[in-house]
Amino acid sequence: MIRLALIGSSEKAKIYAGLSTRLHRATWTVFAPLDSGDLSKAFGSLAKVTTIDDLFSQKLDDFDAVVVDADADVAERIAKEAMNLSKPALVGMLGQGAETIGAGNVLLMPAHPWRFIPSIQAVRRSVDTGKLGAPGLLRIHRWLPLSKIKSTIIERILPDIDLACWFFNEVPDSVWSLQSAVNDDYIQFHLGFTNGGMAMIDLAASLPSGGDYYSLTMIGEKGAAYADDHHNMNLLYSGGQPSAIRSNQGHAELVHQLQEFVDVIDGKYEQTVSLADTICAVQVVDQVLESANTREVVKKEQRK
């Protein structure tokens, strides 16, 4: 049984605690909160609560591996500590500092939960098994509601850039971006891959408060896969125009990601997400922003 420590917000802890019974060969033993939220509603008696400092000084014997769900600055700092202490770590979300971590021989799995979303996994399987043939076009629309606590543009665009690199199994050879002159929360980018592959992604974080929208289409040489919220909407009638309500995919992505982490520690599975993936995605994020700022196409040979 792998004993896991969690570092995250109390809000996140409630979600992770709820996954306890769905994990195989792993259990939560320690929780180090990043805030002062209501801890009684998180793990209850499942895990000891401690501080991050104590976790890495006095509680080292209470856990085998650490799971970090925090913003990039905190995640990167904690990842380095975990590596120094030879504790395997599942860390997200990593950003531009990912290159500085240097995992060495200790398992560092960057959290890319978007890869583990059931619909994305299904699309990926259809590519891996050859059902779709060679990928030709990846089309993603991601629209988010305006948030009081705004994520950075890097945090917003990294997941889809990672998905594009993952599906095409390489970094793009050309990058072209457009931003809206009147909406700072909108960007679209156009990635070109070798052999004619292409990805077109638009991302808006300016919807009115409420639901988000996501659509991913992968068009391959022999077939196509459509993971589209539009297909998965039900209708709610409560007067006036009906509302669309999306069928929930739950937190399956966190379960699958955690289980992979545990299985890799156990030696039962090969790691599918590496620090190199994060570093590649961050580099492409930089190119997307560079293209948006310079209004130039960023090509492979021009890269720094």
């Binding site: 030709g136 076009l137 089309r139 072209w176 457009l178 931003q179 809206s180 002159a181 009147v182 909108y186 679209q188 156009h190 004619g196 292409m198 077109m200 638009d202 068009i219």
Partner: peptide, 20 residues
């Protein structure tokens, strides 16, 4: 038989066309 086009349109509107 497959194309993607980023579009800059009048009035500052942006957009795209993916066709195949």
């Amino acid at each position: 038989d497959l194309a993607s086009v980023s579009l800059e349109i009048g009035k500052g509107i942006v957009g795209s066309l993916c066709i195949g």
